[in-house]
Design a protein around this nucleic acid. Structure first.
Lengths: 317, 317
DNA sequence: TTTGCTCATGAGCAATTACTCACCAAATGG
DNA sequence: CCATTTGGTGAGTAATTGCTCATGAGCAAA
């Protein structure tokens, strides 16, 4: 844009007005009086000072850096909601900070007066967040699990989040009476046809907000550690370009669900719409960098709660 | 489990709200919505952030008139560094504006990569400036107090700047374990002979930059108000031609230290060299005109941060 | 357990600020 | 020289913010 020569004195006046307003804390009326102009003009000068960035505001608090990172992430990836918590260099925990922030966000949703459907996935991080929840009564809301609560050996799964949630939150809750992975696509169809499962799937599709963990792959990743996949299956997945998983749905580095028999055996509900609802991923940590990045760029999630280090990685790469 | 409203968490919220308001430019309604609180609470958090000095506002524009005044002052008095901030006609504060400008200058020095010795005097204005400092880590620098930190009644002095500074700035700091005024010249010699005091005095003599307030005399001046001098002592001083003081060192209208028993009882370190280092005075206001003028013409300081009105006085007289 | 204190909260209202509109004056350009 | 553009102004009004008050929760002392 062709910048014309501004009236030279005007910026000076703007600076003076801005100073009087922000530093000295005078009202625009007082500024107008002391500069001999109308109140409106004083207002214009003040906003000009802001627009011309003559006024520098700095926030002197550790949280400032996090907010800045969150803003950048939101812009870069077009996310709906981003929260960045400070990294704790001394801790190797994958949940500290995130759990609290996640719980606070869950609580904010549950405190809404209008009835909502809140869906939850699985994972250690999400479990940790749910464990931070205070007791809340919200009989109007419904809480639904996207993933099955049955482990490969038939027991209740290790990280079934919805039951922990039900302990704290008084609301109707809908677990998913299925394993995470079934033996074949056919079996999945059969199970999903059951009335009970059907209705839970229907509710999950209406979720207003969804909280999911993001799992990394590899023989140390949750799918292997929890016994859902054998090492050789995992190896094959990784050879096929798999980068991470959410509720068992495995995606590649671009965040696209991969075309592999294993994805056809996932009995979890589909991840609710990222267009019409809020899908919040909770994850941090170097081992998950690749998975988180994939989930964000491929829009498996549209909101993120993570830590500073991870945020910086996502912005750099 | 259950969470409570802790004070630290509240400050974090305040920081977040302040950031959203001042940096991100959201309205308080939007902030309230995104933080899940009422608008009133959001407003309170924002004003808390201001009250807690989490928000630092700085004007990044050399206002022409101020620059011009600063230039003239520098020329007229041969000063090294002069900063003039706009006068706020409606305010009787002796610190508004100067404090921010002083803090910015201190910060500039502390951000230097090479190790420096920074000396500080005392006074309300200087205290206000130091209170504006953000947290800085500068383990290479040393910060030394020129004046004692013990009040006449034996308590820590009202305006002991170095401890406030130590709160914000991570650097080695050297307080002066002495009163400002001792009972006799002999006592001063005795105290100054102590090893600890000796080494602090030595460091102060090496100061690369010094920040001092300039005190006016009179029964409303700081020396009387803070109880260092009795009224009759003050009256006698003024009859003797005293015009102002820096760190307790009392000088006449020509800026020469006066020949009076009281000056022999000042236990402060001598003001560091105005030939080989930078000695910056912070002061404004009609009551201080005479003292500031004396300090400048007598070269008790070689740099000045003041306001327009004071600058104009100094140029006229 | 009761009492009293502190402090956060939401509501309502007053003060302050931002924005839009219509108009004017000086520069610009044919 | 006039039409046009640019930039500024005040008025009026909508939006936003700041403040006071009544209330209730948490907590410590009695």
């Amino acid at each position: 844009m062709a910048k014309r020569t501004e009236t030279p004195g005007r910026l000076d006046d703007a600076a003076r007005a801005g100073w009087l307003y922000y530093v000295a804390g005078r009202t625009q009326d007082e500024i107008a009086a002391s500069m001999g102009i109308s109140r409106q003009s004083a207002q214009r000068l003040v906003s000009l000072a802001v627009a011309e960035r003559l006024i520098k505001v700095r926030l002197d608090h550790p949280i400032a850096a996090c907010l800045e990172l969150a803003n950048q992430l939101r812009r870069k990836f077009g996310l709906k909601y981003v929260e960045v918590v400070p990294s704790d260099p001394g801790s190797s925990s994958t949940t500290v900070g995130i759990a609290e922030a996640g719980a606070a966000e869950i609580e904010r949703w549950l405190k809404r007066p209008e009835p909502i459907v809140l869906a939850v996935g699985t994972g250690r991080t999400l479990k940790a967040a749910v464990d931070q929840l205070p007791a809340i009564e919200c009989p109007n809301h419904r809480i639904v699990s996207l993933t099955g609560n049955i482990a490969p050996d038939g027991s209740a799964a290790y990280y079934n989040v919805i039951f922990s949630m039900a302990d704290a939150v008084k609301a109707r809750h809908y677990p998913m009476p299925l394993p995470v992975l079934v033996t074949s696509a056919e079996e999945r169809e059969l199970l999903h046809g059951q009335q009970l499962v059907r209705s839970t799937l229907d509710i999950s599709a209406q979720a207003d907000v969804t909280f999911v963990g993001i799992g990394e792959l590899g023989i140390d990743g949750p799918l292997c550690v929890d016994g859902f996949l054998e090492k050789d299956e995992m190896m094959e997945l990784m050879r096929g370009g798999a980068a991470g998983e959410i509720c068992g749905w495995i995606f590649d580095a671009d965040g696209k669900l991969i075309d592999n028999p294993i994805n056809e055996r996932v009995a979890s509900a589909p991840i609710p719409s990222r267009e019409s609802s809020t899908v919040i991923g909770l994850a941090k940590g170097k081992r998950k960098y690749k998975a988180i990045r994939a989930a964000v760029v491929g829009r498996q999630i549209n909101s993120l709660i993570t830590d500073e280090d991870t945020a910086e990685f996502l912005l750099r790469n």
